[in-house]
Design a protein around this nucleic acid. Structure first.
Lengths: 204, 204
DNA sequence: AGCACTACCTACCAGTAGGTAGACGAATAG
DNA sequence: CTATTCGTCTACCTACTGGTAGGTAGTGCT
């Protein structure tokens, strides 16, 4: 059952990796510390030597997730392009971010579904500044006539759902497509589709 | 902790109602039979008198969900309108369906996230015929020039994500909107937004 | 009255959960 | 060379899980 995990990695990082995989696949309640420990090749008490509790492990994982994401997203958000190019850049960087970390997407999704019960962190509170900044940006573009008029908040929620779902619900989409959703080709196809769809909806 | 549940309802139906609520809120693993029984106001063994096992209870719930949905969706799918009117009708009936049963949406979402592990039913297999029919319909419209050209399968996945997310992730969206996502007004706003967005993307 | 049936109960079972205590061995520092 | 620290282990704890056993009211039929 133990995976071929890079033996150079510290046990702590191996635990975080394995926990990411398990929590993404089976959720917080569906994952036992024994599952994670077994995946790493140690016993549960040894795991608890590195993280004082299941909840603490989960929170560490989630903090790493959020800081990774924020870091990568802020780079593209801060870029100097404007108008549609900016929207496209953010969409593309979101796609590559999620394609690199589909397990993060699933955990994040589970957390949004639960309303963030397992966390000391308030997920929505962390993302809200980004949301608000995006609302302001979209409203400016619409006022300037660069984008067609939509309700910017609902537009963002639509985009959030459209993009994240492809990664979070990959096992389900596999069956609809009769193919692995997360192959490079399929991810790219979906990315191009979403960008084309948004362009058609936003540009005249 | 016991809710004000209509005392006329049979115990069996009260159990199904409470189970729906619990599974939607906390997931399959996160819900214990004690939780459900307590919500109904009976003990766990009495619950197990009505359903032989947790899994059986869950499957009963899910079968009711799927048959309700299929029944309501097929009515609008079978309607004689065509072109954009048909797409709009299906979108609207989907919205009213989901708005009526947001707990169903959350359970369904959890199932899609897990890949359907708790079920004898294969969720994707049930929905695939609808998916395939919709692909054929969209391809026809695009070939006829009624709709702009998109990848119809990815379009459907985008729509699936955009619509379901609003209901499944309602607790999270509450915080982004700083308002209850599932008020009649907000649901209606989101519905109008999504329809407007799809119209802009599909029609010239 | 006698019987079967429903719906509930308390008490219990084996199994597993997260978490703790304390021992062991290896490495390391003084 | 000793003392300490680190990471791991086995053995254990309590709480809770899904599920079972057996019993008991109440209902309605014969």
């Amino acid at each position: 059952m133990a995976d071929a995990i890079d033996p150079q990695k510290s046990t702590r990082d191996q635990i975080l990796d394995e926990a990411l995989k398990c929590f993404a696949e089976r959720g917080y309640e569906g994952t036992s510390l024994n599952d994670i420990a077994a995946g790493v090749g140690i016993r549960r008490p040894s795991l608890l030597h590195h993280f004082p509790s299941k909840e603490n492990l989960y929170e560490n994982l989630f903090e790493r997730l959020l800081s990774d994401w924020m870091e990568r997203l802020e780079v593209s958000i801060a870029s100097p392009v404007s108008g549609w190019d900016k929207a496209e850049l953010v969409l593309r960087s979101g796609f590559s971010l999620f394609a690199d970390t589909p397990d993060y997407v699933r955990i994040m999704r589970r957390e949004a579904l639960d309303g963030g019960e397992h966390l000391g962190i308030d997920l929505a509170a962390v993302l809200k500044p980004l949301f608000d900044a995006a609302v302001i940006y979209l409203d400016e573009q619409m006022r300037a006539g660069t984008f067609r008029t939509h309700d910017s908040r609902h537009l963002l929620i639509t985009g959030y759902g459209a993009i994240l779902t492809y990664f979070s619900d990959a096992p389900f989409i596999d069956e609809l497509l009769e193919d692995r959703a997360l192959t490079a080709k399929n991810v790219n196809d979906h990315c191009e589709h979403v960008i084309g769809f948004f362009r058609a909806a936003l540009l005249n």
